[in-house]
Amino acid sequence: MFITGIGWVTSGGVGKGNSADPFDFKKGALPDISGNDFPVNPIFRKGRLDRFSLLGLEAIAIALKDAGLYEYNIKRHIGIVASTVFGCLVTDLDFHETVTPENNTLPDPNLFTHTLPNIFLGYAAMLFGLTGPNYILYEKESRGHGALYSAVESIQSGECDIMLAGICDVEPPDGYIYNDAFRPGAIFIMIENNPCDKQNYGKLTVDKNGNIYLNNLIIEDIESCVRECIKKA
């Protein structure tokens, strides 16, 4: 299987693999996300999205473009696995502020919908016609090894031939950082089982111990995977 697309939104900027965009995954505030690149959909209202969903969706859209899979006519069996540290915690707290049973009023239903971290995967599926497996993995650091491994495993077990694997986290609320290594951002890579003669960033393999290799070099996380891909490109 091969990596055929890369997209990222980090505090270092927005970019895709096949470009001169500098890749920097560091601490700091994320850039504003316009969402102007999202395709038109009659039931998709960008203004209703929380920031976590916007961030993940933007990075997925860029990775799809980089892999030449942005445009489509019929739905494709492409899956998405995303690792996160905090998920939609910010949205949880925003929603909770609207829960005021003493006032006998109902809280915000739109915010409630966005208190599930997998919602942005649903938006991506809806906008880009992706019918494959999709779920969120929580991890202690923003590494994405679990997402990368699970995506590879889904391909190996015959569940799906094309998978997006990535990480997604917005800045947590004040006081919530429990790991100094935490960095906000979204990075997604496209993995294809059989891309034929399509341009790619390298070959991914996995051993029985769960180690992942890119062109025979061991890959610790999504960040090192992207750095290796860009170096090759």
Binding site: T113, G122, A125, M126, L130, T131, G132, P133, N134
Partner: peptide, 22 residues
């Protein structure tokens, strides 16, 4: 086992059940 997505709506299931059937 299998996991799929309807790819139609965020809160409302696909009325034809195509995602679940898949």
């Amino acid at each position: 086992w299998a996991v799929t997505n309807d790819a139609t709506h965020i809160t409302r299931p696909d009325k034809d059940g195509c995602g679940l059937a898949l």
